[in-house]
């Protein structure tokens, strides 16, 4: 465990909490992609299946439970809460799950470190996390005017990924024999998806303007 990894995990948690608090406080989920949230829930469940038999540390176990719990709450709010579900922008959140899930499933069967069910599900979760933000980015693009909290949510998520890259660089430099190609390449692709958004986010922040994405 190093400071970069810790910062990454905290930023990840913070991003989820920002979203959850926004939904809870405003009783609105306008601008939030349910597809992305459900994909993240699938990512967490397939990756953290080992929660019950692979104990690594209390830190990891607590984070796993909290990530699954908080993301479930977001999905519950968007699908079931009587007021919140009415604000869901389903007409614009039209990204097809299959376009992301199917290639990730095939890829995880073809490229994995070990051919067994849990390793393949773990690999699937790594691939799926890399692209799970896409429905959210498409929704932001479509609705143009991005409210502050949604913008902050995506920004914090991107920052979390950036810190994970620093964590890998640090581990590679300090831990003999450490390598994780599959995770590195997926992570680089994932972080790459945020670059465009980051550019506009920083521009808006510099000019202290409302974040607006170009068409």
């Amino acid at each position: 465990m190093n400071l970069f990894r810790f910062a990454g995990d905290i930023l990840h948690l913070l991003s989820i909490l920002v979203l959850l608090l926004k939904i809870h406080a405003t009783k609105s989920c306008a601008g939030i992609s349910l597809k992305t949230q459900e994909l993240y829930l699938a990512v967490f469940i397939t990756r953290y299946l080992d929660l019950f038999w692979n104990f690594h540390s209390l830190y990891n176990s607590v984070f796993k439970v909290v990530y699954i719990g908080t993301t479930s709450m977001i999905v519950w709010y968007m699908r079931r809460h009587r007021n919140v579900k009415l604000t869901y922008d389903r007409d614009h959140d039209t990204f097809r799950y299959l376009f992301l899930v199917a290639p990730c499933a095939v890829l995880s069967l073809l490229i994995n470190a070990r051919y067994n069910l849990f390793e393949i599900l773990w690999t699937f979760s790594i691939y799926l996390e890399a692209v799970a933000i896409l429905p959210q980015l498409v929704l932001l693009q479509r609705t143009k005017n991005v409210d502050n909290l949604t913008g902050n949510y995506v920004f914090l998520l991107g920052l979390y990924r950036a810190f994970y890259i620093l964590n890998w660089v640090y581990r590679f430099a300090t831990e003999p024999g450490y390598s994780a190609w599959l995770v590195w390449i997926s992570g680089l692709i994932q972080t790459g998806l945020y670059l465009d958004f980051f550019y506009y986010y920083v521009q808006a922040w510099k000019q202290s303007k409302k974040l607006q994405l170009p068409s």
Partner: peptide
Amino acid sequence: LTEGKFHDEL
């Protein structure tokens, strides 16, 4: 599953 590579990151 516990032998070999261990997934220690989240």
